[in-house]
Amino acid sequence: MKKNINNFYMLVDALFLKIEDNLNLYDNHDIDIDYEIQDYVMTITFANKSVIIINKQELLQQIWLATTVNGYHFNYRENEWICNRSNKNFWEIFQYACSVQSNKNIIFIKNNIN
């Protein structure tokens, strides 16, 4: 089990870094996105004060995404985080949520994103 937990943390770390990299692309644009990470909880705040929260669920080995519209749970399978209800990948849902909540067209870099 310890090996699985270590792998889970490596996957979560990689995901959080890719999220940060993508959010940082909008630093110099007219889209106001702030974020902070504390204890594997990422809080993303938009100019309109709406919030997206991403966190890990260690026991379930899932990533949870909470938006103003819905909550999503993702399992890692076939080299990507997949929603356990819709079977959509994390990036599809996250990009859409960021676009809706910022009221801007947000496009994340898809190269090597899992």
Results as ranks from 00 to 15, higher is better:
residue 77 R to D: 08
residue 30 D to V: 01
residue 70 N to A: 10
residue 14 A to P: 04
residue 105 N to V: 13
residue 83 C to R: 10
residue 53 I to L: 02
residue 44 I to A: 04
residue 80 E to W: 06
residue 92 E to I: 03
residue 66 A to Q: 12
residue 31 I to E: 03
residue 30 D to S: 09
residue 74 F to E: 05
residue 1 M to N: 11
residue 54 I to E: 04
residue 50 S to R: 15
residue 33 I to F: 10
residue 56 K to N: 12
residue 108 F to N: 11
residue 19 I to M: 11
residue 72 Y to P: 01
residue 40 Y to A: 04
residue 42 M to T: 06
residue 20 E to A: 01
residue 54 I to V: 13
residue 18 K to V: 04
residue 102 S to I: 13
residue 7 N to V: 15
residue 93 I to N: 01
residue 103 N to F: 13
residue 46 F to E: 00
residue 26 Y to L: 10
residue 43 T to D: 13
residue 98 C to W: 02
residue 74 F to W: 07
residue 41 V to K: 11
residue 18 K to H: 11
residue 67 T to V: 02
residue 4 N to T: 14
residue 18 K to F: 12
residue 43 T to G: 09
residue 109 I to V: 13
residue 16 F to L: 07
residue 100 V to C: 07
residue 34 D to I: 12
residue 107 I to L: 03
residue 76 Y to I: 03
residue 30 D to P: 02
residue 1 M to T: 09
residue 108 F to V: 06
residue 28 N to W: 01
residue 97 A to R: 07
residue 113 I to P: 08
residue 48 N to T: 10
residue 26 Y to G: 10
residue 63 I to K: 15
residue 18 K to P: 05
residue 107 I to Y: 01
residue 78 E to T: 10
residue 102 S to F: 01
residue 110 K to G: 02
residue 14 A to Q: 15
residue 22 N to S: 07
residue 113 I to M: 14
residue 13 D to C: 02
residue 47 A to G: 06
residue 94 F to C: 03
residue 109 I to R: 12
residue 74 F to C: 08
residue 40 Y to C: 06
residue 88 K to F: 10
residue 24 N to F: 03
residue 21 D to V: 01
residue 69 V to C: 02
residue 82 I to E: 09
residue 52 I to T: 04
residue 109 I to A: 14
residue 92 E to K: 10
residue 66 A to E: 05
residue 94 F to S: 05
residue 15 L to G: 09
residue 61 Q to F: 14
residue 89 N to M: 14
residue 65 L to W: 02
residue 36 E to I: 14
residue 99 S to W: 02
residue 27 D to E: 09
residue 42 M to V: 12
residue 58 E to G: 08
residue 64 W to C: 02
residue 64 W to I: 00
residue 17 L to Y: 10
residue 74 F to T: 06
residue 29 H to D: 15
residue 114 N to R: 13
residue 67 T to K: 01
residue 16 F to S: 04
residue 3 K to T: 12
residue 75 N to K: 14
residue 66 A to I: 05
residue 6 N to P: 03
residue 10 M to V: 14
residue 20 E to F: 06
residue 91 W to T: 11
residue 84 N to H: 10
residue 4 N to S: 11
residue 26 Y to H: 04
residue 57 Q to L: 03
residue 29 H to V: 15
residue 56 K to G: 08
residue 110 K to W: 06
residue 104 K to N: 15
residue 60 L to T: 08
residue 73 H to I: 00
residue 72 Y to S: 02
residue 103 N to A: 07
residue 82 I to L: 09
residue 1 M to V: 14
residue 51 V to K: 00
